[in-house]
């Protein structure tokens, strides 16, 4: 039923796609985390315009499909004479889209730390940033890790969006292999397995972190 020769015949394509998917995921992970932290800081800021911007950013991005976000970068930017490759626009769209969810996870984690902690830090003479750094964030991390892990797993899976904009990832090569073999089932089973190779270790690692943090104090 499953044609294993596809895997050997097209191993170069699968591998190339697999490496690109890893690359897109790593870039997306770092990018979405950085943007997510900044937006989360905006969201809890006492400066009103920053808070509004943060809220608008999150609500806008998490309420439109990922595909549209990626299309904006792939088809929209050329209107402004900015031409990005499929890989670049796909990864950028992925990072921007995911950052909205990450910002929300981080914000929820910070809000979960009791208000008295900030008061204790500030009343001892620590600055806002010092209190965040030494008191609030180390406690928030514990709350943030599980949802953050889920977002990163989603990000790896969502990187398949690159296939739609010729991003040369696993999904893209899956499509090209399929158009030659016409064996839809076998072709995409292998594509799926390659995603699992990435997501299962990631998921185990998140579980490990969760357990470690749970017995930290």
């Amino acid at each position: 039923m499953i044609d294993f020769t596809i895997l050997t015949t097209y191993q170069d394509e699968y591998l190339k796609g697999f490496m690109t998917t890893i690359e897109a995921s790593l870039l997306g992970l770092v990018g979405s985390f950085i943007i997510g932290v900044i937006i989360a800081v905006f969201r809890i800021s006492s400066v009103r315009p920053l808070r509004w911007f943060g809220t608008a950013y999150v609500e806008f991005l998490r309420n439109i499909p990922l595909l549209i976000t990626v299309f904006v970068f792939y088809h929209g930017l050329p209107v402004l004479h900015i031409n990005l490759s499929g890989f670049a626009s796909g990864t950028l769209g992925l990072a921007v889209y995911t950052s909205a969810f990450i910002a929300e996870a981080i914000r929820a984690g910070i809000n979960a730390v009791p208000k008295g902690q900030m008061e204790a830090g500030r009343s001892s003479g620590l600055t806002y940033i010092q209190t965040m750094r030494y008191v609030i964030l180390p406690q928030a991390i514990k709350v943030v890790i599980p949802p953050l892990g889920n977002q990163f797993i989603n990000l790896v899976k969502n990187s398949s969006i690159l296939g739609v904009v010729a991003g040369l990832d696993l999904m893209y090569f899956g499509d090209t292999i399929n158009s030659e073999t016409f064996d839809v089932f076998s072709t995409y089973i292998f594509v799926g397995l390659f995603y699992l190779v990435l997501t299962i270790p990631l998921s185990l690692f998140v579980g490990y972190l969760e357990r470690r943090l749970a017995r930290a104090y």
């Binding site: 902690q117 008061e119 204790a120 009343s123 001892s124 003479g125 008191v135 930290a216």
Partner: peptide, 20 residues
């Protein structure tokens, strides 16, 4: 304000120790 607060210690009803 941070300079002023250095000179003022505060003890809270719920202790507010840093649990970590």
């Amino acid at each position: 304000i941070n300079k002023l607060r250095r000179n003022i210690g505060m003890v809270f009803q719920h202790f507010n120790l840093y649990p970590h």
